[in-house]
C-alpha cells in the first residue's frame, strides 16, 4: 500500500534544505548555491515495513526577516524536517522557532532535526550541550551532509517511520 505524506523542509536560509532534497531524491549534490523562492516540491518513495510512504517534499524557502514563510504551506503536512547549519549556531535558534511555528500551523506532527554540513568539520560550531532539550521523542536530531550523503537517508527514513507510526 502506498500512502502520500506531505513533508515540509524548514530552516534558515542557506542551511542546505534544497541540497538535502536533491541528495535524497536524485542522489546528487551541486556546490552552487541557488536560493529558493517560495517553494519547490519533490517526491520520493520510502519503504517502511510492507508499506510505501510516498513523501511529497515541500522545500520551502529559507526563513529570514525579509521573507517570512507563508503559513498555508504547512497545511496538511504530516511531518517536518528542521534543517540547521552546523557551522552557523544561530540557525539552531531559527530552527527551534520554526518548530514552534510549524506546530502552530500543522498541529502535533513528527519533526526530525538535521544538523547539516557535518562534512565541514573544521567549521563545526555546535556542541552536544547546545542541543540539550532538542533531541526528544517528538524531535530526533541527526547529523547529515548533503555533500557526502551522510545521515540523509536515515533522516528521511526516520521521519517516514514516525509518520507511519502516527497513522497506526
Amino acid at each position: 500500500m502506498t500512502k502520500q505524506k506531505k513533508v515540509c523542509m524548514l530552516g534558515a536560509f542557506a542551511v542546505g534544505k534544497t541540497s538535502l532534497v536533491a541528495r535524497f531524491v536524485k542522489g546528487i549534490f551541486d556546490e552552487r548555491y541557488l536560493t529558493t523562492v517560495g517553494v519547490k516540491t519533490d517526491r520520493k518513495d520510502v519503504a517502511v515495513g510492507d508499506e510505501t510512504v510516498r513523501m511529497v517534499l515541500w522545500d520551502i524557502q529559507g526563513e529570514d526577516e525579509l521573507q517570512p514563510i507563508k503559513p498555508s504551506y504547512m497545511t496538511g503536512a504530516s511531518g517536518c524536517l528542521l534543517v540547521v547549519d552546523g557551522t552557523r549556531p544561530e540557525t539552531l535558534d531559527v530552527a527551534r522557532r520554526l518548530k514552534i511555528w510549524g506546530e502552530a500551523n500543522a498541529g502535533p506532527i513528527p519533526f526530525v532535526m538535521l544538523l547539516n554540513k557535518v562534512d565541514l568539520t573544521a567549521d563545526w560550531a555546535l556542541q552536544d550541550e547546545d542541543l540539550q532539550g532538542d533531541n526528544r521523542p517528538g524531535c530526533r536530531v541527526i547529523q547529515t551532509s548533503a555533500k557526502t550523503g551522510e545521515g540523509v537517508e536515515d533522516a528521511f527514513r526516520i521521519l517516514a517511520e514516525k509518520m507511519t507510526a502516527g497513522d497506526a
Binding site: 517553494v39 516540491t41 517526491r43 511529497v56 515541500w58 504551506y73
Partner: peptide, 9 residues
Amino acid sequence: EVISGMLTA
C-alpha cells in the same frame, strides 16, 4: 504528486 503540490504552492 509533485505537480499537484507545486500547483497548490
